[in-house]
Design a protein around this nucleic acid. Sequence first.
DNA 1: CGGGTGACTCAAA
DNA 2: TTTTGAGCCACCC
Length: 117
Amino acid sequence: MKPENKNFFQKVYEVARQIPYGRVTSYGAIANYLGAARSARMVGWAMNGVNSANAKNETLDVPAHRVVNRKGLLTGKHHFDGTNLMQQLLESEGIVVVENQIQNLETYFWDPIKELE
DNA sequence: CGGGTGACTCAAA
DNA sequence: TTTTGAGCCACCC
């Protein structure tokens, strides 16, 4: 069941919210699931919106830290408050992060296309 | 209304 | 092999 009758951002939020604890996914995977395969940037933009809302005390319940780029690189860590807040959050869920990159990405990777369809 | 920008990704040179 | 270029489209001047 694809929530295709909602705004792109809204859809991104819904998918991101379904990322299980201790798992991660990529911007591209979410975009692909939403039918916007080449719009990974928009997913990142949506995450930026999540972070903004968080800064305003408006909880969206979207684990933006579980969304990384396709190589498992924490490209968005600079957008979080602390320099390594994103990494800490991931490590607190049992994910090993070294040099801003998730180790054993295949083990943690959660693909909405595979997991939700 | 137009143009620049970006938490990405893929493909070609 | 590494480096560029282009596409994607919402948001902010």
